[in-house]
Design a binder for these strands. Sequence first.
DNA 1: ACAACACTGAACCGAATGGTTAAGTATCGG
DNA 2: CCGATACTTAACCATTCGGTTCAGTGTTGT
Lengths: 106, 106
Amino acid sequence: MADALAGVYSALGDTTRRGIVERLAHGELTVAEIRRPLRISAPAVSKHLRVLEHAGLVQRRRNGRHQVCVLQERPLIEAGRWIEAQTAFWSSSLDALAGYLSEEQQ
Amino acid sequence: MADALAGVYSALGDTTRRGIVERLAHGELTVAEIRRPLRISAPAVSKHLRVLEHAGLVQRRRNGRHQVCVLQERPLIEAGRWIEAQTAFWSSSLDALAGYLSEEQQ
DNA sequence: ACAACACTGAACCGAATGGTTAAGTATCGG
DNA sequence: CCGATACTTAACCATTCGGTTCAGTGTTGT
């Protein structure tokens, strides 16, 4: 993917998928376990997982006839870093503005 | 909006919009300034800004015939917090697994 | 061997998305 | 007042998205 962050953020943009990520953060789950509390068809779950996997947020492993899904922290950390970078710029430009204004006053 | 985070993440899921946010993090910009380096029509920019505004990421203020756009940090911070929470759970469940495994071994 | 289970793939559907052009609304400069 | 500037709204278009159903593929227990 050209823009990895785009994949991560738009994956997290769906409430169902963000719910899946929240549950996977507490530990591995099979596809069936992921599906159980959700009121959607198995193929719908499969599609969501494909999106999460494509964003790098989830990895799957076969265990007999089950697919075990594991959350990958890396993309989450990178997404968090981008956000931190923006808020850092935001406050530093506020500081710059404050400095500018106090100079103006003198 | 029912789910504020969904709005924020899906707003950030678009590369053009994330670019706008990056530039706004360095300081205020008018709509025309935002548009300049972009190769899209004015209405397209207007739509992107509406999405960002609806997500709470941008606020607009009229200044003569210009609209000045200002980045809002709050939704970014909340989005960052959600991510941090998930990575925190992720590592604590890793710790739990490690603990479980070391107990098993004995 | 075979039925049940745990999925995935394909085809389809309606709604949302990102883009366009054309037309409208304010505001400013002369 | 009038033309130019800075947008927004409306209508449209192609693509994507989240969901469905139906049909397949492995795997497992009996």
